[in-house]
Write a protein that binds this DNA or RNA. Structure first.
Lengths: 342, 342
DNA sequence: CGTAATCCGTTAAGCGCTTAATTACCCTAC
DNA sequence: GTAGGGTAATTAAGCGCTTAACGGATTACG
């Protein structure tokens, strides 16, 4: 068994049949009798046979692999638990099946496009997952041009593209109502980069809900998910004329960073300032005070996306799947706003 | 260009030569004249030709892919920036080349072995990366039995297996000497699971250095990298008879968790308790007080491992590569121990 | 009893590429 | 004038698997 990989013709020889018969038997298709099939199967696993993916791909045109490329600078990617959780979910749905995951991490969108194009050209993947969609995303055009099956992890913005999304608007509203119930009126949302569709969705929901709740002073400012940018922005917001009493962040790192800034400015959390993080994580749980956060079903998203992608690859129509809803996990970083200073 | 992928025979037809000639030309081997080669090349990229990885694999036996399987429970994997940084480094070394990364995340070691075996059987990878080696690791035996090129990310424990390692012992000594210089005598190391080789290496270095420095009360306790276990262990250690004045952790999550426990026990950091984290991360930078930490060149490790693996695949001998040394980054979680209570 | 249908299996082509073997041609040398 | 030696191309086999097309034997049926 050392170093030598058996092929179907080894099996054929051992079983005294043709390779065609072996192929039919191993793929459970008609054309071989039950006893023969069983005999072939036995020999196959006695020999430890595993189909060569290259040979199979070449003849049936399927790669039995899906691709994911993540385009975030190395600096920020290690920090966010998001991707690892996503990958966990993806693997969960892939486990047991014949499909593998091809991963690429890049730091610019041209490289990302090139990666998809190359995988397609090399016939290395049967389909791809698309994350972090931006307005008029060139990847959408690319996959459509290439007829490369793709599933978007995000809101349904492109009509005929399958996607798996989470109802963020709901969570935005929940968070706002929660803060308002606590008595907050001046609330600022510290968002990620404007270019992302999900940023826009949340900001829109935020603005709409704020208007409905009569929060004239609610507003949105932008950072880039990094702790540095978040610190800068937070510092500016908190030292402005009438500073907000609550801040809602688009990820965990920025919220934790703001915790540091608050400390530095002598503001105690939550007594003088309330903080809400977006993706919940160990980070949120571990810092003091622990951060109230919106928990999204990230792994579930990944798993659902994989299942959908596999279906689409098999010719299923482009569905738009919604995951379970995010939920607000209140911890110690949110409380009543301080009484107005006289 | 839509949906149809050109093959070398399309190129051959367009150039009026045989497919053999095209193959020679595109692979830069002798057998075609310069003008012809140029003409073929031109046509190839006008057509947007990309070699089919399946066909190439089938005929030359190379998969142009390497595999990495990470065996950590989903619960903990999202938390540690380690893997994402590692993957960033890996990608960096892979970028531009023809090789892709196949990733698998599992939560038990049987599945990990199965994954390697399957990849080998399917001829999907040319080699693999091995992380988190344990004593008598079955993966070592497996890759040797299969003659599957492999590079270990960790200390050279198996003589003839190539590896990329970082001198952790050095860092352990540096940390201990630093703490002793600050005046600490009672120091406890909160380590990861005993089974990992790197845990053992560091613990051994810790014990040896402690003895050399005459620290009779230095000792090692174990947790499992999770914040819960770390909190439990830390609580126990800090409430024991003569509690330590300094704690050294095997990752960032555990150190942050301990920060919470210290807070809960009314111990201020660093005045009454000093804390050192092992892998540096945003987490360490962002919490208050910011954690002193040992920074290791993780991405560099990944990149070096890839380069070594690619060499080994090409028949190079099994080297043992050392990365640059880790360094202690002192922050606000370490200081002099409190004066002895009378 | 002849013929059709059914079942089980073989044959061979083809997927896209690499490469050893072969051929065709042009030079140079004796 | 022809043997010898390059060079530039073609041919064809082969990588391991799938699958349409085919064939021989057995069974069913009128």
């Amino acid at each position: 068994m050392v170093g030598k990989r058996p092929t179907i013709s080894d099996i054929a020889k051992a079983a005294g049949v043709s390779t065609g018969a072996v192929s039919y038997a191993l793929n459970n298709r008609p054309g071989v009798s039950e006893p023969t099939r069983r005999r072939i199967m036995d020999i196959a696993d006695r020999l430890g046979w595993v189909p060569s993916s290259a040979a199979r791909s070449l003849s049936d045109g399927r790669a039995n692999a899906i691709g994911l490329v993540v385009d975030r600078p190395a600096r920020v990617i290690g920090v966010e638990p998001y991707f690892m959780q996503l990958i966990s979910g993806i693997q969960g749905a892939l486990a047991g099946g014949p499909t593998s995951l091809l991963l690429q991490v890049t730091d610019n969108s041209a490289a990302e496009l090139a990666a998809y194009r190359r995988w397609w050209g090399e016939r290395r993947v049967d389909g791809v997952l698309l994350v972090d969609l931006v307005q008029n995303d060139p990847r959408v055009e690319l996959v459509q041009e290439l007829r490369l099956p793709a599933v978007v992890l995000g809101e349904p913005v492109v009509p005929d593209l399958p996607c798996v999304w989470t109802d963020d608007e709901l969570a935005v509203v929940e968070v706002l109502e929660y803060l308002v119930a606590l008595g907050h009126r001046r609330i600022v949302r510290v968002a990620g980069p404007t270019k992302f569709v999900h940023t826009q969705t949340r900001s829109r929901a935020f603005t709409t809900a704020a208007a409905r709740l009569g929060l004239a002073e609610a507003r949105v400012v932008h950072a880039d998910y990094s702790d540095e940018a978040a610190a800068r922005v937070t510092r500016r917001v908190l030292t402005s004329g009438t500073p907000p009493t609550a801040l809602v962040f688009d990820n965990d790192v920025m919220a934790v960073s703001a915790l540091g800034v608050a400390h530095e400015l002598g503001l105690t959390v939550p007594d003088q300032l309330s903080l809400v993080a977006w993706d919940d994580s160990a980070l949120c749980r571990l810092v003091r005070p622990a951060l109230s956060a919106v928990r999204r079903p990230i792994a579930e998203r990944g798993a659902a996306a994989v299942r959908l992608l596999l279906d689409v690859i098999n010719g299923a129509p482009a569905e738009q799947v919604k995951t379970s809803d995010p939920e607000l996990v209140p911890r110690s970083s949110t409380s009543h706003p301080p009484p107005p200073t006289p």
